[in-house]
Nucleic acid binder design. Structure first.
Length: 456
RNA sequence: GGCGACGUAGCCAAGUGGUAAGGCAGGGCUCUGCAAAAGCCUUAUUCGUCGGUUCGAUUCCGACCGUCGCCUCCA
């Protein structure tokens, strides 16, 4: 089976063919760096990482571009409200630039801890102001813009198929109570360029043909993806929340300027839910990677948890599921470690694995194969090599994992205990096991002798 | 008000028009000085409820109940 992916644009599973093989252009909407990323955000980046690894597994050269939104994301009320970055700067007593740098670095640290591959190209919105102005100018020249008191807006009524990605029903939207028009001509119109408020000096603002201000949130993706991947490329990803607003707007901009629908495939990752509902930065109920580490969890246990569910299904998070994932990962690592030196990959098992990841990234089933192959009577060397190949996609570092080095003083206790056991001095042997446990290790007696492991 | 998703064992979660992956937890056995770990076995006659289509539905259709998301910044 060749790679098939669910495309939100067509609402169907389609065979993936690169536009310009062997290269695949992949654009993934990145973070807005006004706060730490939470593990819900990171679920989407894990999904995108899996996608990227599958493409690489298939032999494609992936050119992966991720933006860093460091300006222009407003707090509320559509195109009104305070800029999130500037707000954090005010609250934290830092400059907007310092805030952006700080949270960008935190994000990069977090994805590294989850073994998410870095994009080929990082691009920051504030490094591409010129490109964004050019894109707005292009849209303006084609006649899709109008000016209001606070900015340059995109007139979505000029596009016949505006919102096709979301199957937006304009009449339905207008019937809704939550839409506020202001000076906008249509509820779906959005800002391309915002003017700085007259009564305050923004930290982040630039000159433009329309006046001093800053770019609207959506324009950076159209401008930067065109710069690095061209106006029509293979795959564009984001969270499910982007299906309704952000991505239709990106498509509208690119369609107006270049006449393309931006990307051949549109993939969206679904949310992580708490028992009480979604996790949101603005809801204040979020958990970070740092929180997990502080509670003694390996970040990869969270990655394992995410791999257990399909990317297009909501995933429920709570401590019980995290503990289950953590335990499963520990067992798996120990199991794979015990297989020793890798031999030859088993072609039949690799083919089964490939079919599953090709089936719209059915990672839960692919992961189940790791457990299944472990129960076969294939040689340990074959299992090890095959699982190592699987892990190119799973990214759980199964084959790399090594037990923690046991300190000499603990090994000394183990030796003393062995001596006591030889003497059948069970009382002393049990005391020594307690001492080993106090040191943070556990000893397992096997036919081959004692095995020492750091206690979980 | 509009659009959409989901509801599968104690928990997380795959999946299929022909009778339910995997993990965690639980139970049993083996092993063991005792343990721990591990291995083996086991755990849903059943997939929210009620109808319909069908030889047959958890899987398709409809209604209903429930949970949730988006429509406003949002992964």
């Amino acid at each position: 089976m060749s790679l098939q992916l669910y495309d939100t644009y067509t609402r169907s599973v389609r065979v993936f063919e690169p536009l310009r093989p062997p290269e695949v252009g992949l654009y993934t909407c990145g973070p807005t760096v006004y706060d730490y990323a939470h593990i819900g955000n990171l679920r989407t980046y894990i999904f995108e990482d899996i996608l990227r690894r599958v493409l690489a597994f298939d032999g494609y050269t992936v050119k992966h571009v991720m933006n860093i939104t460091d300006v222009g994301h407003l707090l509320s009320d559509g195109d009104m409200g305070e800029d999130k970055i500037e707000r954090s700067a005010r609250l934290e007593g830092k400059s907007a630039w310092e805030v952006a740098t700080y949270y960008t670095e935190a994000f990069q640290r977090d994805i590294a801890r989850l073994n998410i591959l870095e994009p080929t190209i990082w691009c920051q919105a504030t490094d591409h102001i010129e490109e964004q102005i050019e894109t707005v100018r292009c849209i303006e020249e084609k006649g899709y813009t109008y000016r209001t008191a606070d900015g340059i807006y995109f007139d979505t009524s000029r596009l016949d198929d505006y919102g096709y990605l979301a199957r937006i029903d304009l009449e339905g939207l207008q019937a809704g109570a939550r839409v506020r028009l202001g000076e906008k001509r249509n509820p779906t119109d959005f800002a391309l360029w915002k003017f700085s408020p007259e009564d305050e000096k923004r930290q982040m603002e630039w000159d433009s043909p329309w006046g001093v201000g800053f770019p609207g949130w959506h324009i950076e993706c159209s401008a930067m993806s065109a710069k690095y991947l061209g106006p029509y490329f293979d795959i564009h990803c984001g969270g499910e929340d982007h299906i309704n607003v952000h991505h239709p707007n990106e498509i509208a901009q690119t369609e107006a300027c270049y006449g393309t629908r931006l990307a051949n495939f549109w993939l969206h990752g679904y949310f992580l839910h708490l028992d009480t509902g979604r996790m949101g930065k603005s809801l204040g109920n979020f958990i970070t990677v740092e929180d997990l580490v502080e509670h003694g969890y390996d970040p990869l246990a969270y990655r394992y948890l995410c791999l257990n569910a399909h990317y297009r299904s909501p995933l429920t998070f709570n401590l019980e599921t995290l503990d289950a994932a953590s335990r499963a990962l520990d067992r798996l690592r120990d199991l794979v470690y015990g297989w020793g030196t890798p031999g030859e990959v088993d072609a039949a098992w690799l083919a089964r694995f490939t079919d599953r990841i090709h089936d719209d990234l059915n990672i839960p089933q692919a992961l189940a194969l790791v457990w299944d192959i472990g129960k076969t009577d294939l040689s340990a060397a074959t299992k090890k090599a095959t699982v190592r190949a699987f892990d190119e996609v799973l990214g759980l570092q199964l084959a790399e994992w090594m037990p923690a080095v046991v300190p000499d003083e603990v090994m000394e206790l183990v030796a003393q205990r062995e001596a006591a056991r030889d003497d059948k001095d069970w009382v002393k042997a049990d005391e020594l096991r307690d001492a080993i446990a106090d040191a943070g290790y556990e000893v397992r007696d096997t036919p081959e002798g004692p095995l020492v492991r750091k206690r979980a």
